[in-house]
Design a protein around this nucleic acid. Structure first.
Lengths: 159, 159
DNA sequence: TATTGTTATACTCTATAACTATA
DNA sequence: TATAGTTATAGAGTATAACAATA
């Protein structure tokens, strides 16, 4: 195990810290950190179908449905029939959902500030950029196919 | 919401991708991604107490206990009484635990390779360094105290 | 045929609070 | 008094498989 293999654990530790702090800060609003991500995704793109919502979070459609049931029961989101696709349902924030989202967003500002407190603006931008590339790398192979990476970083076959 | 606020979501997306891929790759060994982190922590420092283990993962002592019960039932770890502290219990990998850890470690190698496939060695090092600083920043205030950050990134009071 | 969502189900992780035993 | 761990308990997220309705 060399230093190159520290990336997964350092990624996990950073995320875990963020998640924990968020849960604590959001608890007074009765919203979990993951529910906040769902609300934030809707705030950026209302009237998504459940599948689009799951893809953007990212999360699993089945997981998203379970979360939507909880949020619907609390009156923060509502699901409507899709205008052109009878199978699909669109999801939107209710008025209460928008208000709660804004409150939780504000409650999270100290955490976001603190995350960047030891980073210069350039470093923060760099970090986001590096994280995106990692995410893209991990998404580039279907999870159920195991192919060997070759030395130059491309794949032996497929795609 | 400006671009500076993308850090939390990009961190989450990267971690989520890693977690998902890991769950899939580890499933054949009956080990979850989080259990793997626990095994890896023990592989680096055997005979930790449960609290030390929780602190290093990082995770919650109560969460760790639940995980340990599962792993103990599967024969991958064992808990012994601490040599000098009668309250504490030390946790160690069993022989089967070491073997399973090695297998799962190997099964995860393609994922680790892939994470770094679009990063230069320098960028990978930089990413780990930035993530560590974020983790440290987030850990520097107890989660149950809300203090305002001031402009220079230090705190109005405390510490 | 493929896709969207539902239903039923199960498991893991997470965490709190009250408790016992030991330091 | 403080700390390590246990017990009981609850909730949330995760995911799979079989299914119905629609494209």
């Amino acid at each position: 195990m060399n230093q190159n293999d520290e990336l997964p654990l350092s990624l996990r530790a950073a995320y875990h810290g963020l998640h924990r702090r968020s849960e604590t800060a959001f608890a007074q609003y009765g919203v979990t950190a993951d529910q906040f991500v769902l609300l934030a995704t809707l705030a950026r793109g209302d009237a998504l179908t459940q599948r689009e919502l799951a893809a953007r979070m990212p999360s699993d459609p089945s997981t998203v449905r379970a979360m939507l049931l909880l949020l619907e029961k609390r009156g923060l989101i509502q699901r409507n029939t899709h205008p052109t696709d009878g199978r699909a349902r669109t999801v939107a924030l209710t008025k209460a959902g928008r208000r709660t989202f804004q409150q939780v967003w504000d409650a999270g500002q100290p955490i976001r500030d603190q995350m960047r407190s030891r980073l210069s603006p350039e470093e923060a931008t760099m970090l986001v950029s590096l994280l995106r590339r990692v995410t893209e790398s991990l998404a580039s192979i279907p999870p159920d196919t195991a192919r060997m990476l070759v030395d130059n970083g491309s794949y032996e076959s497929g795609l």
